[in-house]
């Protein structure tokens, strides 16, 4: 099947390219738009972007493989990032991550068996004053206790979080 994107994503891409004096500068914003729609960046997607920006496919691949946020494999319905860096770790983020994985029956970096979540450790999310923090997709959850984690996992399992 040929590689296809929704009209909305195509419109976003058309909008970001002219913002920059040079086309290649739009690369990261385009990758963000595609990953948001498709969940990850397939090789087909990377080749499509190269063609759209008229750059060599390796230029796209270099960027995709450098930045931790870009993924080449699908993730669960919700992408969950547990901050593991200093201030969160001082406030128990390792336990938070263990508990979250336990509640969702998964391991860091894997898709949970019900497909609802991928839990990963992330480096500093810049909310150290409300440590420990967890990001569920775009939303930040702060000052978490183990009880909060149990509740958060329930909401994810029972699809209370869209």
């Amino acid at each position: 099947m040929a590689f296809e994107l929704s009209q909305e994503t195509l419109d976003t891409i058309d909008k970001v390219i002219p913002r920059y004096p040079q086309r290649q500068s739009a690369l990261m914003m385009i990758l963000h738009a595609i990953q948001k729609e498709q969940g990850y960046l397939s090789l087909e997607a990377q080749e499509w972007v190269a063609e759209r920006l008229e750059i060599a496919p390796i230029k796209v691949r270099e960027v995709v493989t450098f930045y931790p946020f870009y993924r080449e494999k699908p993730v669960g319905k919700h992408y969950i990032r547990v901050c593991r860096t200093l201030s969160c770790a001082l406030n128990g983020s390792y336990k938070i991550c263990d508990r979250l994985c336990q509640e969702l029956d998964t391991k860091p970096g894997e898709i949970s068996p019900d497909g609802k979540a991928t839990v990963e450790f992330a480096e500093c999310l810049a909310s150290c004053g409300t440590a420990p923090v967890v990001m569920v997709d775009d939303d930040m959850y702060e000052n978490l206790t183990e009880d909060d984690i149990v509740e958060l996992a329930r909401r994810i399992r029972e699809e209370e979080i869209k």
Binding site: Q24, M28, L31, P68, A122, E123
Partner: peptide, 19 residues
């Protein structure tokens, strides 16, 4: 895209160039 090194100003510039 979640890379600390982009806070270094010349790394940031490279990143803004799509690299």
């Amino acid at each position: 895209a979640a890379a600390y090194i982009c806070g270094e100003e010349t790394g940031l510039i490279e990143s803004l160039e799509g690299k």
